[in-house]
Write a protein that binds this DNA or RNA. Sequence first.
DNA 1: AAGCTTGTTGCAAAGGTTTGCACAACTCAG
DNA 2: CTGAGTTGTGCAAACCTTTGCAACAAGCTT
Lengths: 344, 344
Amino acid sequence: MNIHDVARAAGVSISTVSRAFSSPERLSPKTLEAVMKAAREADFVPNRAARGLVTGLTGNLGVVVPDITNPFFPPIIKGVTDYANAARQSVLLATTEENANREQHLVDHLLRQVDGLIVCSSLLADEALRRAAAKKPVVLINRTSEHVSSVVIDTAGGMRQALGHLRALGHTSFAFVSGPAESWSNAERGAALLDEAATLGMRMRTIGPFTAHYESGVQAGDELIFGSDTAAVVFDDQMALGVLSRLRNRGVRVPQDVSVIGCDDVLPVGLAQPALTTVAAAGGAAGTAAAEILLERVRSAQELPPVSVVQHSRLVIRDSTGVRPAPGRQASLDGDRAPARPSL
Amino acid sequence: MNIHDVARAAGVSISTVSRAFSSPERLSPKTLEAVMKAAREADFVPNRAARGLVTGLTGNLGVVVPDITNPFFPPIIKGVTDYANAARQSVLLATTEENANREQHLVDHLLRQVDGLIVCSSLLADEALRRAAAKKPVVLINRTSEHVSSVVIDTAGGMRQALGHLRALGHTSFAFVSGPAESWSNAERGAALLDEAATLGMRMRTIGPFTAHYESGVQAGDELIFGSDTAAVVFDDQMALGVLSRLRNRGVRVPQDVSVIGCDDVLPVGLAQPALTTVAAAGGAAGTAAAEILLERVRSAQELPPVSVVQHSRLVIRDSTGVRPAPGRQASLDGDRAPARPSL
DNA sequence: AAGCTTGTTGCAAAGGTTTGCACAACTCAG
DNA sequence: CTGAGTTGTGCAAACCTTTGCAACAAGCTT
């Protein structure tokens, strides 16, 4: 069932059928209707491969994320697919497993089968990104790079708010539980914290780097207990949840003994015990924005200049932050509420 | 940079270049090496569209899930993409938003751009699925349908275990908090529970149906409080988390007053307060299995008969289930631990 | 009335690969 | 040394669409 059959049935040339699907406005209403009727009856839909062969377009957008299992990413992906589908594009998904080599390979590979690519939290060097963007439109999420479009969720701003919040509660020092060393977001957050800490006259200690997992948070929890900070700002919610869990198991009370702040405001975080104070990032909106920027570039005849949009984030204050305890909180370790598990 | 250029550079015909990539074993080692060298130097990779045009294959597998934001699905998707990528296939992702019409449309649409399709928790009628499977290989996840391959996570079995667990704790009646009415899994679970309840001599009350969201769980929590059941088996973890939250806010203690069991063992569930007893489903394994079955069918020349595999599930006992309270638990509503928020 | 526009449609080339068939070269048994 | 079998390679058709260009009709201007 191809364009020829439809053309015959409708009594027109194949060009006309082709145009009925690709630029209907160039046909007279009468012929258009006739073609469409014939196509409907023959249950005809243009062949993607053939179309792609001549146009060079695939009708696909690619999305690469580090780990789809990390609840930070699904909302972004959803934002992208929703926008893409509304624009009759399909979405190709791939995961890097937080591995730069794999990401590089994936990007190279994917670029050949999509019209444009969205890359979340890229671990790639600027140069590699620039090269990729030279071939097909690319939009970065949570990463900037000169010459490449991006939408970043301004968690750095949220981090500053977080610090303001801690300061207002009387804290004068805190630990930053760092995420992956290669993570651009991590660098951003760390830098913002450091800067704001200076402004507010707070002392900052960095723990890590860690991979961004629950288990890393558990590990970080112990390092936290070992120190004397009254507050911790954690790279992301997953890790913060791990920290929370470890602190509870070691008998450290949150927020009475230590205040904890996460980042992302991702699914279970409001349900944690205590509910986690966190910097909320609007992943869905970021995904949609990225898809919009990308599609604009895919559709444009000329090369559009790269744009950078930032999605603001905001501090969501819940129950894991409280006023600074009086000095000497160590006591609580052996205090009224015994550890659920023995200390290591 | 096409096959002709490479052919010229290597001093062979285009057929030979083509074969170097599609059936290298049919070339003499010498020519193969020469061709590959030329290809490498020209940075040549076969054009997908052209290849697809003649083979009718796309190199893509489709995955459709109801809602990527539901943490039950990412592990499945991950299982699929990992397997697919290892087999040099790409994955097209689409979400139905739990809407049968949209799912139908998506399946029709997607079928034309993939070599095979994996459909999770399908809402479609058997007939529609059969029609789809007639066009391209289709594998269902968590849904069976005659004539279509499927892998189902046997949560029904887990549900039976759950009931055994409750019975052993002395419970004689329980509420089943039902998920979406159209959900096949929901029907399976409900039926298994009903059957097992009869076997164990337990009374079952059904609450719902609800959509499978946290908020629905909150709503269900109130219905639960209103009744006199000492235990609840909830359609899935998201809802169970909602139930837990509502119960806590209304001052009902879990597990002292009511035992709660979820299903799926999805991310935050072990971190809930109390940690949720749940039926663990191995989503990743199911995804991998589905991809394997699908790919086998895609690659096979003849039409393979449909297969059905079941992934077993198991009950993970955590802290949300306990011995049946003595009759008259209502007291606890006004008991020692006051509601965190006033009752409605 | 002739020349111009504007709008609609057709012709044919082009896009890059796969693959059935034919053919050549080579191996090996008899 | 011949003929059959095997292995490796090339030819050319086929896959289905898009699109630049040309042709033509109808309407308008002068």
